[in-house]
Design a binder for these strands. Structure first.
Length: 904
DNA sequence: ATACTGACTTGCGGGCACCACT
DNA sequence: AGTGGTGCCCGCAAGTCAGTAT
C-alpha cells in the first residue's frame, strides 16, 4: 500500500536504472575488492600456508563464487556433492527445477550488471535488462513480461513477495522452478553430472582427492594444533564432570574478502530464480539502482572473470555438490527451500560484506519493516485485593496479567522480581489506588483464566489450529523477506518484542520490571535509498526515523525499554548470505590462528615470569583463554547480573591448590556456573599466587587488565585476533582432530555416535550447559526399572536353560502358568538377546546421564566450522542431514560444497 | 586513557510439532 | 488414539568488540 506510491515515484528513475535486471551480479564483485583486501591479507597468511593447496582456499572461492571454486577441489570427488543427494531428503523435484535456466543465464546476467554504474550506462542497462529478464523469465513466462516486470517493481514489496512465495508454494511447477533457478547453475549441472559419480562409492571418489588437499594439517605438529585444553585435560583433574576445560572464541569477519571477489557467478543464480521473485525485486531494486551504480567500483571485467567457472569439469563437480545440497534442502519446506536458494546465491553473490568497519554491506535493500504484536484485549477477570475483586483499567489489567501468568515460575520466589514488578505496576495504578500492597493481591482468578485459555487452545481441533496458523502466516508473510542486492533473503526477527515482564538470567537486578510496549515511534528503519519506505502498520502512527545506512546490516532497531542505552535490532536470518559471509570469515580467522598458535603460546609462556606485571597478567589471561576457553570478560554495570569472564575474574574465583592446581568457580555468561580444577604450569600457578597477594576475594584478579588491552595485545600477535577467536579455534580444531582420529569403519549410526562424542567434547570445553529436564529423573528411574525387569527375565532364562539342559521343564511364570518348553539353543539365543537389550539400555542411560547437563547445539551453531562436518560426511558417506537439521543446513549453505579433504 | 555507543554474535529456555511406542 | 520423549525453532537476554566521544 503505502509502499506502492513511493515505489512508483522511484520507478521513474528505475526505468532508467533498468540495470537491475541483471542486477544480481553486481554486488558481490564490487564489494569484494576492497573489503576483501583487508581480510584477504590476513587470510592469505593463514589459509595459504595451512591449506596449502586445496583446502582452505578452495573453499573460499567456492563460497564466494558459489560454484566455481569448490568444483576445482572436488573434482576428484564428485561424490561429495552426491552425498546430499543420496540423503533421503533429496527429492526428484530438484532435478527438474534446476535444469533450465541457470547456467546460460547467469553469464549474461553478469555482463549486464556492470552497466549499472552510471546514468549513461543506464540505458545500456535497460537493454541489458531486457535481455536478462527475458532469459530469466522467458522460460517461464515469456517475452512480454519484460514490461510487466517493471510494473511489478512498482508494486509494494509485499505484493511482490507474495507473488514469489506463492509460486513457491502453489504453482508447483513454476515456483519450484524459479527457486531452483537460483540455485540453478549448480543444480542443473548436477542433473547431468551426478549420475556417474553418485553411483560410484563415495569412498572411491574421495580417495582420489584426498592426497592433494590436506596438506596444511600435516605441516603442523599435532600438539600445536590441539587445544591446550585437550592436552592439559588429561592432566587436569577435573573436579566436576560437567563443566571443565578449554577454550576458544570466535572471531568476526574480515577474512575472506579476497575470495569474495569471485562471487560474481553467484548473482547469476539470483537471476534465474528471480523470474518470479525477481520482478518484484527488480522493481525495488531499480529504484535503488542508482545507489548500486555508484557502488560498483569494480570493473566489469573483473566481475565477469570471477564469476564464470573455469574448468568445466570442476565447475560441474561443484555444481553437483551444490545440487546435492540443494536437493536435500528441497525436501524441506518450500519456504525453506527459498531460503536455501537464497543462501546459495548468497554464497556466490555475496559481496563482501565486509569486514566490518565502515564498509558497505549492501547496495540495495528493500523490506517491509516490522510487525507489531496485537493490541491488548481485556479479559475482565478481576484480581482479589484483601479478598475483594478489584476493577482495573485495561492497561493495569494487562500488567497484572503478565504477573499472574508467572505464578508457577521460580521468579515468584525472588523478592527482587516482585519488588521491581510492584514499582512499575504501582506507578500504573496511581497513587490513590486501592491496591497498596502486592502481598494482599490474589492473582489466582487471572491465573486460572489463563490456564483455561491454554486448555482451550490445546483442545482446538487440528483444523482450527491449522487455520490459525495460516492466518498468522498470511499476516506475517510480507515481513518475512527482504531483498538485499536483489536477492530475496529471510528476515530474522521481524516481530517486535511484545510487552512483558523482564526476565533476566541469574540474579538480575532488573528482573520483574515492565518491558513496555514498543510503538512505531520507537522504531528506526534502515532501508535502501530508493526503496519504498515500509508502511507503518499501525494507522495514525509513524516510524521514528528512516535511515539509509549501507554500512550496517540491520533493517530496524528500537531502544531496549529496560535499558534505553541498548538496542534491539532486526537483522536478516542466519541463512542469509550476509550472515553466512561473516560466519565464514569467523572460521577463516580461527583457522588463521592455527598458523600463529605455536608462537603465541611460546610468547605467553615466556611472559609468565615477566617482571612487568601487566605483561604477566596478559600472559596468564591469554593462557587461560586458550587453555580453558574462557570468555574475554568485559566490565559490567551494576544494573546487570554479576557475572565474570577472564579479565573480570575475582580473586575469590580462583583458588590455588598446591602444588600446581587451580580451582575455578565463578558465574559466567547467563549466570552459568563454571567449575573446573586444572593442573597448570608452575609459572602460571605462581603468577596467580602473586596476583592474589594483598587483595581481598572480591578484588580483580587481573587488576592491570581489561578486554580492550588484552585484545589490543592479541592483535599484535595476529591480525584480527581477539579473545573469542580462541574459542572458535579450540572448538573446531578439537572436532576436526577427534573426528579424524576416532572415525572407523562402521555403519552410519556408529559414525554419528563418533560425531556426537566429539561434539560433546567441544560442548564441555566451552562449558555449554543446559538445565536438567524436569522429567529427567523420572526417565532414568523408568529405565532402571526396565533394566531390573530385564535382569529378572534373564535370571529366569538362565534357570530355564539349566533345567532344559538337564531335561527338566521350565519353572512356572509369575502367574503360575506353565511356560513353553524351549530347547537350550533357543534359550541361549534369548539370553543373548536380553543381554544385548540390557547393555543397550545401560548405554542409553549412561549417555542420557552424561548429557543431561550438556548442550550440544550451541557449539554446533556457533563454534564448529561446518566445513569440517561437511567434509567428514563426504569422506565417510554420512548423509549431512544426520548431523545438520534443516536450519543448520540453511545456515551453512556456504559450506556445503567444501572439498572432502578439507581440514580445519 | 577511559567511558560510552553501536553493531553484531552467542546462549539458554520454553513451547510446540512430530515420532515411536502402547 | 493417546501419550511420553525428543528435537526444533524461536524469543530474547547477555555476551564480544570496534569505534567514537570525553
Amino acid at each position: 500500500m503505502a509502499v506502492e506510491a513511493p515505489a512508483k515515484h522511484v520507478f521513474d528513475f528505475d526505468d532508467d536504472d533498468d540495470d537491475d535486471g541483471p542486477v544480481v551480479f553486481k554486488r558481490n564483485n564490487t564489494l569484494s575488492s576492497k573489503q576483501n583486501q583487508l581480510n584477504s591479507e590476513i587470510k592469505k597468511a593463514s589459509s595459504q600456508r595451512s591449506d596449502g593447496h586445496s583446502g582452505s582456499r578452495a573453499s573460499y572461492v567456492q563460497a564466494s563464487n558459489g560454484q566455481s571454486s569448490s568444483s576445482q577441489k572436488n573434482k576428484a570427488f564428485p561424490s561429495s556433492k552426491s552425498l546430499p543427494v543420496r540423503s533421503p531428503i533429496l527429492s526428484p523435484k530438484a532435478s527438474t527445477s534446476s535444469a533450465r535456466t541457470s547456467p546460460v543465464k547467469s553469464p549474461v546476467a553478469n555482463f549486464k550488471t556492470p552497466a549499472s554504474l552510471n546514468d549513461h550506462s543506464k540505458q545500456a542497462l535497460k537493454q541489458n535488462k531486457c535481455n536478462v529478464v527475458n532469459e530469466g523469465k522467458s522460460p517461464i513466462k515469456g517475452a512480454t513480461e519484460a514490461n510487466s516486470d517493471d510494473d511489478d517493481d512498482l508494486r509494494p514489496l509485499s505484493a511482490q513477495l507474495k507473488g514469489i512465495s506463492n509460486q513457491g508454494t502453489k504453482g508447483a511447477s513454476t515456483s519450484s522452478t524459479a527457486q531452483s533457478h537460483r540455485l540453478v547453475s549448480k543444480t542443473e549441472i548436477k542433473g547431468s553430472t551426478k549420475d556417474p559419480d553418485d553411483e560410484a562409492p563415495l569412498s572411491v571418489r574421495f580417495n582420489m582427492k584426498s592426497s592433494a588437499g590436506t596438506s596444511s594439517s600435516k605441516l603442523y605438529d599435532s600438539d600445536e594444533k590441539k587445544p591446550l585444553a585437550s592436552n592439559s585435560e588429561q592432566k587436569c583433574s577435573t573436579v566436576k564432570g560437567k563443566q571443565e576445560k578449554s577454550s576458544m572464541l570466535s572471531g568476526k569477519r574480515p577474512l575472506d574478502k579476497g575470495n569474495s571477489s569471485d562471487q560474481s557467478s553467484a548473482k547469476k543464480p539470483k537471476i534465474s530464480d528471480t523470474p518470479t521473485a525477481m520482478k518484484s525485486k527488480q522493481l525495488t531494486v531499480k529504484a535503488e539502482k542508482a545507489d548500486e551504480d555508484y557502488d560498483d567500483d569494480i570493473p566489469i571485467s573483473q566481475r565477469i572473470k570471477k564469476s564464470p567457472p573455469t574448468n568445466s569439469k570442476t565447475s560441474s563437480m561443484k555444481q553437483k555438490a551444490a545440487k546435492v545440497v540443494s536437493s536435500s534442502l528441497k525436501k524441506l519446506n518450500k519456504k525453506s527451500k527459498k531460503e536455501f536458494k537464497n543462501s546459495k546465491y548468497i554464497k556466490s553473490t555475496k559481496v563482501s560484506p565486509s569486514s566490518g568497519d565502515g564498509q558497505k554491506k549492501w547496495s540495495t535493500l528493500v523490506h517491509n519493516g516490522v510487525i507489531f504484536p496485537p493490541p491488548y484485549k481485556s479479559h475482565g477477570i478481576k484480581l482479589l485485593y484483601d479478598g475483594r475483586p478489584i476493577d482495573l483499567t485495561p492497561e493495569q489489567e494487562e500488567v497484572a496479567t503478565m504477573f499472574a501468568v508467572m505464578k508457577d515460575t521460580d521468579y515468584m520466589n525472588k523478592p527482587q522480581f516482585k519488588k521491581n514488578f510492584w514499582e512499575d505496576w504501582s506507578k500504573l495504578l496511581g497513587k490513590n489506588h486501592t491496591i497498596k500492597d502486592l502481598d494482599k493481591c490474589d492473582f489466582t482468578p487471572i491465573y486460572e483464566w489463563h490456564l483455561q485459555e491454554k486448555e482451550k487452545k490445546k483442545q482446538m481441533s487440528s483444523e482450527e489450529k491449522k487455520a490459525l496458523k495460516e492466518e498468522k502466516l498470511k499476516q506475517e508473510e510480507k515481513y518475512m523477506w527482504a531483498i538485499v542486492d536483489r536477492v530475496k533473503e529471510k528476515v530474522g526477527n521481524f516481530r517486535v518484542e511484545p510487552p512483558g515482564l523482564f526476565r533476566g538470567r541469574g540474579e538480575h537486578p532488573k528482573m520483574g520490571k515492565l518491558k513496555r510496549r514498543i510503538r512505531p515511534s520507537d522504531i528506526t528503519i534502515n532501508i535502501g535509498k530508493n526503496a519504498p519506505i515500509p508502511e507503518c502498520p499501525i494507522p495514525g502512527e509513524s516510524w521514528k526515523d528512516i535511515k539509509h545506512d549501507n554500512t550496517v546490516t540491520w533493517l530496524a532497531f528500537w531502544n531496549d525499554p529496560i535499558n534505553p542505552k541498548e538496542f534491539k535490532y532486526v537483522f536478516l536470518a542466519a541463512s542469509s548470505s550476509l550472515k553466512g559471509q561473516s560466519d565464514k570469515e569467523k572460521y577463516e580467522k580461527a583457522r588463521m590462528l592455527k598458523e600463529y598458535i605455536k608462537n603465541i603460546r611460546a610468547a605467553y609462556t615466556k611472559d609468565f615470569t615477566s617482571k612487568d606485571v601487566t605483561k604477566r597478567q596478559i600472559a596468564v589471561a591469554t593462557y587461560l583463554i586458550d587453555k580453558l576457553a574462557l570468555r574475554a570478560g568485559n566490565e559490567k554495570d551494576d544494573d546487570e547480573a554479576d557475572t565474570v569472564g577472564c579479565c573480570t575474574l575475582k580473586v575469590g574465583n580462583v583458588e590455588c591448590i598446591p602444588p600446581n592446581k587451580l580451582k575455578f568457580d565463578f558465574l559466567g555468561k547467563d549466570s552459568i556456573q563454571y567449575v573446573n580444577t586444572v593442573e597448570v604450569e608452575l609459572p602460571v600457578y605462581n603468577a596467580i599466587g602473586q596476583f592474589h597477594t594483598g587483595k581481598s576475594k572480591s578484588d580483580d584478579l587481573f587488576d592491570k587488565l581489561d578486554t580492550s588491552k588484552l585484545n589490543a595485545h592479541l592483535k599484535e600477535l595476529m591480525p584480527g585476533l581477539t579473545a573469542k577467536v580462541f574459542r572458535t579455534y579450540n572448538a573446531s580444531i578439537t572436532l576436526d582432530e577427534m573426528l579424524n582420529k576416532e572415525t572407523k569403519d562402521g555403519d552410519v549410526a556408529e559414525k554419528v555416535v563418533i560425531y556426537q562424542r566429539a561434539n560433546k567434547e567441544v560442548a564441555i570445553i566451552c562449558n555449554h550447559q543446559r538445565s536438567i529436564s524436569k522429567s529427567h529423573s523420572a526417565q532414568m528411574s523408568r529405565l532402571t526399572e526396565k533394566i531390573t525387569e530385564l535382569k529378572g527375565v534373564l535370571k529366569e532364562l538362565k534357570i530355564d536353560l539349566d533345567r532344559a539342559k538337564k531335561g527338566k521343564p521350565p519353572l512356572k511364570d509369575a502367574d503360575g502358568k506353565q511356560k513353553r518348553n524351549l530347547t537350550p539353543e533357543v534359550l541361549e539365543k534369548k539370553i543373548a538377546q536380553t543381554n544385548a537389550k540390557i547393555e543397550k539400555m545401560e548405554r542409553d542411560m549412561q549417555t542420557k546421564e552424561d548429557l543431561k547437563t550438556v548442550a550440544l547445539g550451541t557449539s554446533k551453531i556457533n563454534y564448529l566450522d561446518p566445513r569440517i562436518t561437511v567434509a567428514w560426511c563426504k569422506r565417510h558417506e554420512v548423509p549431512i542431514e544426520k548431523i545438520f537439521n534443516k536450519s543448520l543446513l540453511a545456515k551453512f549453505a556456504w559450506a556445503m560444497d567444501v572439498d572432502p579433504d578439507f581440514r580445519f
